Computed example of a mutant assay.
Amino acid sequence: MLLYLSSNENIGIFDFLSKEKGMVIKKLSGDFYLKKFVIHDMRSLSHYSYFAIDLKALKDNENEIIEAITAFKAMYDSRIIIFAEGLKREDEIISRLIEEKIYNVIISKEIQEIKDEILKCLSHIGKTEEDWNLKETHENQYIFNHKNVKIAVAGVSSRVGTTTTAFNMARFLFNIGAKVSYTEANDSGHLKEIADYYEFLKIENYYRYKGVEYYPNKQFPNDVNYQIFDLGSLYKGNIAIFKNCDIKVLCSGSKPYELIETYEAINSVKDVNYNILFTSISNEENFKIRKSFENSKDNIHFLKYSPSLFDEKINEDIYKEIIKDFIA
């Protein structure tokens, strides 16, 4: 038996199961607060083997949906099936569902493909993690043979895009299929403000958002492909950490006084290989900056302006070049 919370738009999507499989389906259509439904109404309906949820029928925000599903899993044994027509693997809600081990998620748009996905969800095993991972591998065509590759991102001074670069690199790495973490390895406290503003999912001692794990207080996990450390401004107290990371990224602006700070930073790390990311201005100015630093032991790149913390695309060619020795 299947219980289906449906929007009016998608009320007939599971009907073929009654005709072809003889399955008993109970439909509840309209607008629902899933969290309230799970707590107050589900107890009398817990005998259903499958609980299908049309995301279009829900009035909850994403955090409330995840909390409600987590509570449901703790209380009941019914298999959860999520109908999320037209969404993609990288969409926030889908990523979070998969992270919570909710693999029976339907995202197809064509009728036959939707039916195929429904039947897969109702099969003996249902959808598994491999169903989603195989799709990622096929799309991304990358192999990650390394574990816990440490990437240090530091600025020659404050407000040169260090945190934006670290966040965008994390998004880029996740987008190509890697498991990645971000660590706030500085004392700014910005991560909590960012997490509150964008409503990151709080999990014990870290946050999760769009597939990336974010750790405050210099904490980090040991089971990822890449660990990104946002060191803030480079100074005597964190130079050793910067030098000891596998990949070293130094962020700088392109203003004259920022270039002076870049020279000073270079002198403090001149015995290691690193990448300098300058803000791109114009071809003429970029050439002048490259000429000024041509004797430095570094790889110079010029970033396109990115106001977003979650833009993995705009500078992806640069990020790919930076990690090329740790990707296949």
Rank of each mutant, 00 (worst) to 15 (best):
E294G: 01
K202D: 10
I247G: 02
E184Y: 09
E312T: 00
E294T: 09
I53R: 05
I228N: 04
E64T: 10
K192C: 08
S46G: 05
N244K: 15
E184I: 10
K236F: 08
F293S: 02
F172M: 07
K56F: 01
K26G: 05
A154G: 09
R96G: 07
I281R: 11
S49K: 14
E92A: 10
I13F: 07
N225Y: 01
S254C: 06
I241C: 10
I143V: 13
L5E: 03
A195P: 07
L250V: 10
L201I: 15
K179W: 01
K115H: 13
T183Y: 05
S7H: 01
I203N: 12
K324G: 01
K304M: 08
K243D: 12
G189M: 09
F200Q: 08
I289W: 03
A57I: 06
Y142I: 00
I241M: 14
F174M: 05
D325I: 02
V149D: 00
S44W: 11
I69T: 10
I194R: 04
K243F: 11
I143C: 06
V272N: 10
G22L: 09
S123L: 06
G155T: 01
S108P: 03
Y235K: 14
Y48R: 01
E20M: 09
R159Y: 12
G155M: 03
A178P: 08
L2T: 06
S268A: 11
E139T: 04
N238Y: 04
L234R: 03
I53V: 14
M23G: 06
L191W: 02
S108R: 07
F302T: 03
E67Q: 13
L2M: 11
H146D: 12
M169H: 02
R159C: 13
F14Q: 03
N275G: 05
D187T: 12
N145G: 11
Y103Q: 03
L45V: 07
P216D: 12
I53S: 02
G155Q: 03
I39K: 14
C251H: 00
L58S: 02
S181D: 07
F144G: 02
L87S: 08
E284A: 10
H40P: 00
L309K: 10
C121M: 06
N186I: 07
K320D: 06
F51Y: 07
S282F: 02
L28G: 01
N286D: 15
I102G: 06
K320W: 00
E261G: 01
E113L: 13
Y305I: 09
Y305F: 15
M1V: 12
S95P: 04
N238K: 08
K192A: 14
F32A: 03
S296T: 15
T162S: 11
L259I: 14
K150C: 06
Y209R: 07
F144M: 02
I65C: 02
F293T: 09
I143Y: 11
D230P: 08
I98N: 00
K120S: 12
I53K: 03
W132H: 12
V105W: 00
F229W: 04
N10Y: 14
L87M: 14
E264N: 15
I125H: 11
G237W: 14
K297I: 13
S292C: 12
E213Q: 11
K248M: 06
Y198E: 13
K291W: 07
P216Y: 04
M1T: 14
I314F: 00
E85K: 15
D187P: 01
E264W: 09
V249F: 03
